[in-house]
Amino acid sequence: MIEILLIEDEFIIAKDIKVLLSKNNFALVHYARNYDSALDLFVKNSYDLIISDINLNGKKDGIEIITEFSKIKKVPVVYLTAYSDLDFIKRAERTMPFAYILKPFNNNQLKTTINLALLNFNKQSIKISENEENTSKLELLTIREKEVLITLSSGKITKEIAEELNISNHTVEQHKKNIRKKLNLTTVGELINFTISTQLLKLFK
Rank of each mutant, 00 (worst) to 15 (best):
K111H: 04
D61P: 12
L140N: 03
V188L: 10
Y31E: 09
G58S: 15
I54V: 13
A99S: 12
V172E: 06
N24A: 04
T113I: 09
L203G: 07
I17W: 08
E163Q: 14
A99M: 12
N25F: 03
F11M: 09
R144V: 12
A82G: 15
E160R: 00
K181L: 06
E160I: 00
L102C: 03
A38V: 00
V148E: 07
T187N: 08
I4S: 00
M1R: 00
D53C: 04
Q124E: 14
E190R: 10
E147Q: 14
N134Q: 02
E145N: 06
K60Q: 13
A99K: 15
F194H: 07
F42E: 04
V77M: 05
N45Q: 14
S37T: 15
K15E: 15
I114W: 07
L118Q: 01
Y31M: 08
T198S: 09
T171R: 08
D87H: 14
N107R: 12
Q174H: 12
E145L: 04
L191E: 11
I13L: 13
N115S: 11
P104L: 05
T186E: 14
Q174Y: 11
Y100E: 03
V77K: 07
F42S: 00
E64H: 05
E163D: 10
N115R: 03
E130A: 05
N34G: 10
E132V: 14
A162E: 04
N193R: 14
P76E: 04
L86F: 15
I161L: 03
F26S: 12
E64I: 06
F69D: 06
R180T: 12
I143P: 07
Y35H: 13
L6H: 01
E139I: 15
L5H: 01
T171D: 06
L49K: 03
N120I: 13
K159I: 05
Q174D: 07
I161A: 10
L141D: 10
L201C: 05
I150K: 03
V172I: 04
N131G: 03
S197C: 13
L183V: 04
D87N: 15
I143R: 08
K103N: 09
S136G: 01
N178W: 03
K181P: 08
V148W: 07
A82F: 02
L119I: 08
I17Q: 04
L20V: 01
H30M: 09
F69I: 01
L203M: 10
K177W: 11
M1S: 02
N25W: 00
L110K: 00
E163P: 08
E3R: 13
F26Y: 10
I7Y: 10
L116C: 15
K137E: 12
F204A: 04
Q109H: 11
E132K: 10
D61V: 05
L138G: 03
D9Q: 00
L140W: 09
N106K: 14
I179N: 08
K18V: 02
V78F: 06
M1L: 00
